[in-house]
């Protein structure tokens, strides 16, 4: 069986500067795409299209996109393996940081807009409501990953330790999808879609690991 050469060893057809320019265009494009749900929310706020229960719309929208981008982050490495192209993982950090940003905004909207920073309710929620505790666990899991996302931190920790630490993102994904599943009342279709995607994406890693290839 022949293995496709990895992108770093494959001879480049384009000139390096042209590749860099294209890289930059892609980066800006991915940034804007990730910002779009936030801009949409801002537009709805201005046009009064947040619906009958605006706070619910805001909190749900931010949570949906935190989960979607988290799943997308987890899809980029398998996509590299599937396509043999490294272009996917070049955007992993940015998409992951956007997922974190949406998670922070989601929790802030819940605490400030929904609960109105009402202390007793927040304490109750954080100590008695399993779905909120699991969701908070997902956010806490993402914090060290966001903090160590810079090149400097990769160097300081060393590649191996950094990679090991960042496997926490699997846990964050599982916690976030579980949080959603625990929250819904009766119709579990949507959370099950995320859980299915996570099973596929984490399963791909397990399969690679079992067959002795680097994850």
């Amino acid at each position: 069986m022949t293995v496709a050469p990895s992108a770093s060893t494959r001879p480049r057809v384009r000139s390096p500067s042209g590749g860099r320019r294209r890289d930059r265009v892609w980066r800006v494009g991915v940034f804007l795409a990730c910002a779009l749900p936030l801009l949409t929310l801002a537009a709805w706020t201005v046009t009064g299209d947040l619906g009958v229960n605006p706070i619910e719309t805001i909190v749900r929208h931010l949570g949906d996109w935190a989960l979607r981008l988290l799943v997308l982050t987890l899809a980029l490495t398998p996509l590299r393996h599937l396509t043999g192209s490294t272009r996917w993982v070049r955007h992993r950090r940015m998409v992951g940081l956007w997922a974190f940003a949406y998670a922070v905004l989601h929790v802030s909207a819940y605490a400030v807009l929904d609960v109105g920073l009402h202390g007793p309710t927040l304490i109750d929620d954080l100590t008695k409501r399993p779905y909120i505790m699991v969701g908070m666990g997902a956010l806490l899991t993402l914090i060290p990953l966001a903090v160590t996302s810079t090149q400097g931190m990769v160097r300081r920790l060393g590649g191996r330790a950094w990679r090991r630490l960042h496997r926490l993102v699997y846990l964050a994904g599982i916690l976030a999808a579980t949080h959603y599943l625990m929250m819904v009342k009766a119709d579990i279709t949507d959370p099950m879609v995320y859980i299915f995607l996570l099973v596929v994406l984490l399963g791909a890693r397990v399969t690679r690991w079992l067959t002795g290839r680097p994850v």
Binding site: T121, R129, P130
Partner: peptide, 19 residues
């Protein structure tokens, strides 16, 4: 008496921002 997953002590009246 709380719902197992959330408090029933307060409510949002549709159209209002606070509870």
């Amino acid at each position: 008496v709380d719902h197992p997953r959330w408090s029933q002590a307060r409510e949002r009246r549709i159209g209002e921002w606070g509870r």
